[in-house]
Amino acid sequence: MSDQEAKPSTEDLGDKKEGEYIKLKVIGQDSSEIHFKVKMTTHLKKLKESYCQRQGVPMNSLRFLFEGQRIADNHTPKELGMEEEDVIEVYQEQTGGHSTV
C-alpha cells in the first residue's frame, strides 16, 4: 500500500510543476525593474502585453530577450528553461537604418 501512496504523490508533484508559478524580473533599458509572477505554462505574450500596457507603449515597439534570445509570443517559461528570479531584458525595437557599404 505504501507504494501506491507514494506513486500518486509523485504524480501530484509532476502536476504541481506544470502549474507552478515563478517570479520573473523584467528590466528596461533605463534599468527599471518590474516583477511578474507567471505560470510555467503561460505564453509569455501575456507578460509582454502587461509590461507594455504599464509602460504605455505599443508591444511592437519593444523586444524582449532572455539569455540573449528573442522571446516569441508563444514561448512559455518552461520551454525556455526559466527559473525563479530570472531576468528578461527589454530593448527599444530598432527599425529602419541603412547599409554603410
Rank of each mutant, 00 (worst) to 15 (best):
Ser2Tyr: 12
Asp3Thr: 15
Gln4Val: 06
Glu5Val: 14
Ala6Asn: 15
Ala6Arg: 11
Pro8His: 07
Thr10Glu: 06
Thr10Arg: 11
Asp12Thr: 03
Leu13Val: 12
Leu13Arg: 13
Gly14Asp: 12
Asp15Gln: 07
Lys16Met: 12
Lys16Trp: 06
Glu18Thr: 09
Glu18His: 11
Glu20Ala: 10
Glu20Met: 12
Lys23Trp: 15
Lys25Asn: 11
Lys25Ile: 08
Lys25Thr: 09
Val26Cys: 12
Val26Leu: 15
Ile27Thr: 08
Ile27Tyr: 04
Gly28Leu: 00
Gly28Arg: 10
Gln29Asn: 15
Ser31Leu: 01
Glu33Thr: 00
Ile34Ala: 04
Ile34Ser: 05
Ile34Gly: 02
His35Glu: 07
His35Thr: 15
Lys37Met: 05
Met40Arg: 09
Thr41Arg: 04
Thr41Trp: 03
His43Arg: 15
Leu44Pro: 03
Leu44Cys: 05
Lys45Ser: 10
Lys46Ser: 06
Lys48Cys: 00
Glu49Ile: 04
Glu49Gly: 06
Glu49Lys: 08
Ser50Asp: 07
Cys52Asp: 02
Arg54His: 02
Gln55Thr: 09
Gly56Trp: 03
Gly56Tyr: 04
Gly56Glu: 07
Pro58Val: 00
Pro58Tyr: 03
Met59Gly: 06
Asn60Tyr: 06
Ser61Asp: 06
Ser61Cys: 08
Leu62Phe: 10
Leu62Ser: 04
Arg63Leu: 07
Phe64His: 08
Leu65Met: 14
Gly68Ala: 01
Gln69Ala: 14
Ile71Gly: 04
Ile71Glu: 02
Ile71Asn: 02
Ala72Leu: 14
Ala72Cys: 10
Asp73Tyr: 04
Asn74Ser: 14
Asn74Pro: 05
His75Thr: 10
Thr76Arg: 03
Thr76Cys: 08
Pro77Asp: 03
Lys78Trp: 09
Glu79Met: 14
Glu79Arg: 05
Leu80Ala: 00
Leu80Ile: 01
Gly81Glu: 13
Gly81Gln: 12
Met82Phe: 02
Glu83Trp: 07
Glu83Leu: 14
Glu84Val: 09
Val87Ser: 11
Ile88Leu: 07
Tyr91Val: 14
Tyr91Gly: 05
Tyr91Leu: 08
Gln94Phe: 09
Thr95Met: 13
Gly96Asn: 03
Gly96Lys: 01
Gly96Ser: 07
Gly97Val: 04
